[in-house]
């Protein structure tokens, strides 16, 4: 079993796929709702206090906006824990979505610079691409399993 960081971290579909192939998904335990009644698209499930942006200083300097640092306090430790990662570029909001573009850039940067197996995929725009998309994820996750059990 490998700990796989998923991006977008809110994607329940990716989270489910990772779990189905016997790995542990690292992401946020929230899905994107069809109607948004919360402050942000991916409002945190727990109360974040002003301490989180300070903890986020480990991953982003003080001149970085507090919202980025607060998010990094949540995702930074997961990135450190990750043994593999899947990044889906420009996903549809319904697939999974994270509210701050600057944090998204920083998360992807950290994942790409971590020497772990990484699947970097564009979100499919047609049925045909969709089939290839799922196949690519399956192949990546199966490969991880092989490596893990070797």
């Amino acid at each position: 079993m490998v700990k796989v960081f998923i991006y977008p971290a809110t994607s329940l579909i990716l989270s489910d796929m990772v779990a189905r192939f016997g790995h542990e998904p690292l992401g946020s335990a929230i899905g994107i709702r069809e109607r948004i009644q919360t402050p942000g698209i991916e409002s945190p499930p727990l109360q974040i206090t002003p301490e989180e942006p300070k903890k986020g200083l480990k991953w982003a300097a003080v001149e970085v906006p507090s919202g980025v640092r607060g998010r990094m306090a949540v995702y930074g430790p997961l990135i450190e824990e990750a043994e593999a990662a899947i990044i889906i570029r420009d996903p549809d909001y319904a697939f999974g979505c994270m509210g701050c573009a600057r944090t998204n850039e920083l998360i992807q940067f950290h994942l790409r610079h971590k020497e772990i197996p990484l699947l970097d995929l564009a979100y499919p725009t047609s049925d045909e691409e969709g089939v290839g998309f799922v196949a690519a994820i399956k192949e990546f996750l199966t490969g991880l399993k092989t490596e893990g059990s070797a």
Binding site: I32, R33, E34, R35, I36, Q37, T38, P39, G40, S43, P44, Q47, I48, T49, P50, E51, E52, P53, P65, S66, G67, V68, R69, G70, R71, V74, Y93, A94, G99, C100
Partner: peptide, 30 residues
Amino acid sequence: CGPEYSGVQKEIYDAAAMVDAEVFFPDIAL
């Protein structure tokens, strides 16, 4: 954008409550 992850959403609620107001988030579809 960002008040929850900055840990200040509660401060916004508190300030509104002090002047007998309520903050809400316009409900819209994705």
